[in-house]
Design a protein around this nucleic acid. Sequence first.
DNA 1: GCCGTTTTCGGCCCGACTGTTTTCAGTCG
Length: 599
Amino acid sequence: MSFNTSVAQVFERMAAMLELTGADKFRVNAHARAARSVGDHAGDLEPIAGDEKALTAIEGIGKGTAAKIAEFARTGTVAEHDELLAKVPPGLLEVLRVPGLGPKTVKLMWEQLKIESVDDLKATIADGSLAGLPRMGAKTIDNIADALAFMADSGKRLHAGVARPIAEMIRARLAEVPGVTRVAYAGSLRRGRETVGDLDFLVTADDPGAAMEAFRGMAGVEKVLAAGETKSSVRLALPELGGKRFSADDSASVQVDLRVVPAESWGAALMYFTGSKDHNVRLRERALKRGMTLNEYGLFEDDGGEGSPQSRGVVPVASATEEDVYGALDLAWVPPTMREDRGELDAADGGTLPELVTLDDIRAELHSHTTASDGVMEILESARIAKGRGFHTLAVTDHSKSSAIANGLSPERLRAHIGAIREADEEIKGISILAGSEVDILADGALDYDDELLGDLDVVVASPHAALSQDAKKATTRLLRAIEHPLVHIIGHPTGRLIERRRGLEPAMDEIIAAAVEHNVALEINAHWMRLDLRDTHVRAAAESGCLIAIDCDVHAPGDYDNLVFGVETGQRGWLTKELCVNAWSKARLHGWLKKGRG
DNA sequence: GCCGTTTTCGGCCCGACTGTTTTCAGTCG
């Protein structure tokens, strides 16, 4: 585990333990925020751990947390963290994760009933002693028991690639409900996050009650979690939704929230429901400073009246569209993919928001496989799909010899394959097919083919496939060596991580980026929703350094081209512009760049 | 514990829903 990840975990645990010991909630919040800042930071913090000035320059890191980072670098631990650990039973942190249980309740359970673990909690439910706590009625206990069962079943976040088709299905269903005039999904799915914890929907309707009822009665709803006038929450069983299996786990489910809002509040509500929470908090603070207040009904002048402005019939300054609300706060409209409180409001204030790369900008796929290795399409079949999407270039990059499991090509087979690619390129008009390889970066950073063969290729994507758990230093050296190779164009899925399944390499990303800039090499955002590698925070650091980025689908089958949206959104989350994205370049510019290292 | 167009102290977002309550605390997003 990298230094940054370790420190982030320390702060995260401290936040939870502080909460349970009844610490000031702002202090708790500060630790949680520090955890996020450190976890998101692209550069390795270990080398600068002694430099207070450098650390406190990071948003959310102050003198206190900087000292703890230094302490962790020096001693491998944080004394205050260890003291808390001695006080708070570790199992209690698990109890805190039960949906519906917050710090107040868990603390009470711990103090009054000596509950120190999920098992303890289950025992007090079984023997009836839990009912002895204040505000602990039969209904509440039922809900806790249900939440515990649900946690055991699932409770995991969904990959964006799984969540999106489900969301599209729900959107279509809601749009069919009589009287529903507008439907949108919001939340982390709209922000393009790599995983989502739940699905959030927003509708306007002539008959809000009917819309709510239709939502709660939807096929697949296994439990109604909340049913109010303007908001409902349900738990939706995933298997066989709409006749299609979304999960191999028969008990998997996802929470779906629906909010019905007045048409005139649409923009404010969409902002509120899109988040992120931290972005919204910043916006509301900004509103306050300007003598206004912002909520999901609109932006209101603060008139000093009692109660919420909308309940008193106050007309909002802005509310109908997101542009109106941002505009009334003297901000440019911020794309949802940027709403993470990572400096986007400063940019929106100063007129320096980047012009983000979009799906329509993409004109080339530079990482694709065919039946020659582990793909299911012939060269021309894939090329026709690429052409149909308006691409000017497709690079065929089958696996190299060390990827035996993926039917990697021996040098002889690759030479023959290059011939077949040239023939296909002759045959099809309107798109260029380039001969390439996804060549393995071996554990020591050497490439899987010799330079003579690599020099015959139009495109070299070098990717790590094996030895993905090597330590950070080795990983850094390995990737640097590949980047420095004069014939390499793109580093494919640089860390090799699989979201929620494999951590992958944890190289010093700032060094990798600096080398890529120096050697005119692009780092890939692999668009497959299980990879999204580089991840958004890495892309952000790369884009800031002027590093080239390739967004590629790593095509194996026809449907893989549709994953492009996830790659583009990851790029946007990293503030990537069209200028730095090689797939968005004109054919002439792209092909010119590909000549690098080749005479 | 962080932070600054009310800047080194004194703030720190806002509302819906539930369950247990006779007016609200806790949780969630």
